[in-house]
Design a protein around this nucleic acid. Structure first.
Lengths: 210, 210
DNA sequence: AGCATGATGGACGAAATAGTCCAAAGACTT
DNA sequence: AAGTCTTTGGACTATTTCGTCCATCATGCT
């Protein structure tokens, strides 16, 4: 029997106009769900912010859940792209500091409000949408993988001692980052985030050669 | 003019029965909002779980927001009481390890699901209810204060070197804890939480005398 | 005992939100 | 240029959720 591969989309032609509308919807939803939270964002909010109509929402997404999943995918792609740019050439301790500085500076712009774009989605969706949870877990893993790869390069180049464990250190950095985001968001003050990252970096520093 | 002090409650007599009903409502709401999230918990969920009726909910709380605030207060009190018991006599590195173990073990019971009782509230409410945010920020500060006090005792007793900064270390431990909770919740695996805390403890260890 | 006040059950109303539908307009194919 | 499929606007329905109300019952006080 000649059939489409298992995972094929329900197959629907998309004109450029349709694609752009879809992108506009997702983009608006990404932003709204970041600042208001997923559950507090209504489809009408999205409709208004994206300048579309109800039929367009339901033309592109079966229901709100599907839109939320598109938001998770889009946000994951955004964050990973940004982090890839920041981390793919990481190979020195100074590079790690630059990474930290960029994150802190970016978060300072809004005084810590809204937290991490991925972390806030994770906190809200992990126990509510299993599919979203898995996607987010994968995104975190990739993000952490970028860090681990950088640390591995530092180890191979002799910047870090042989007993440094890049995977564990990357986990520690991610946790410090996410915890820092949350504390900063709650305090409306980026200081705890800055401190958390500094301590995590200090710990990495303790594995430096020299 | 003879009046009540500024911050007096709207003053309402509470029979023991009424008090018990109120407590039952808050208790049910605390649990539901932890596992389902605040926004995903409806008043009807609370009503059913607490075996009460609509009129009782609105007899004790003006609206959902007020109930949420009671939940935040109750949860804060619970967590702080527990942590006070675990931390008020902290004065050795082994004590810190016991603290870590207790948290990891507790979180392992649910495979990391639902995250930190306070952290998950913070993530959902910080940018949605300013009053709740402030309460949560204070609770985090107190929690962190318990850690800092313990570290200070360790320093005074010569367990930690003079150059150890208890406040900063406490911030680092809290961030590692919260970040660990979030990663564990997302991965449905407590490993990252365990690792994050271990690395943070390693960092504290680097300030040990001997 | 009897009155005042708090507590309760549950029907009811109001508002917000998700989701449906169809006629009309636009875009692609032959 | 006709025909087919996609896109769109927006009215409409259904459902969920919040919040009100009041008659009735329980409780404490004198």
């Amino acid at each position: 029997m000649v059939s489409r591969p298992e995972n094929a989309q329900p197959e629907r032609r998309l004109t450029p106009r349709g694609a752009s509308t879809r992108a506009r919807i997702v983009s608006a939803a990404v932003e709204l769900m970041y600042v208001k939270g997923v559950n507090a964002t209504t489809l009408d909010d999205v409709r208004a912010a994206s300048n579309t109509s109800k039929s367009q929402l339901y033309n592109h997404f079966a229901d709100k859940e599907e839109l939320v999943r598109a938001v998770v995918a889009e946000r994951s792609a955004q964050v990973l792209e940004r982090e890839r740019a920041n981390l793919e050439r990481l190979k020195s301790f100074r590079g790690l500091i630059r990474w930290r500085d960029a994150l802190v500076r970016r978060n300072a712009l809004q005084n810590g409000a809204y937290g991490c774009a991925l972390g806030s989605l994770a906190g809200e969706l992990a126990d509510q949408d299993e599919q979203a949870r898995v996607t987010l877990a994968e995104s975190f893993a990739q993000w952490q993988g970028l860090l681990a790869a950088g640390l591995r390069r530092m180890k191979e180049n002799g910047v870090l001692r042989p007993d440094a464990d890049p995977e564990r250190l990357a986990t520690g950095l991610m946790a410090a980052l996410q915890g820092g985001y949350l504390l900063a968001e709650t305090a409306h003050d980026i200081e705890p985030m800055a401190v958390a990252l500094d301590l995590a970096l200090d710990h990495v520093k303790s594995f430096l050669t020299t």
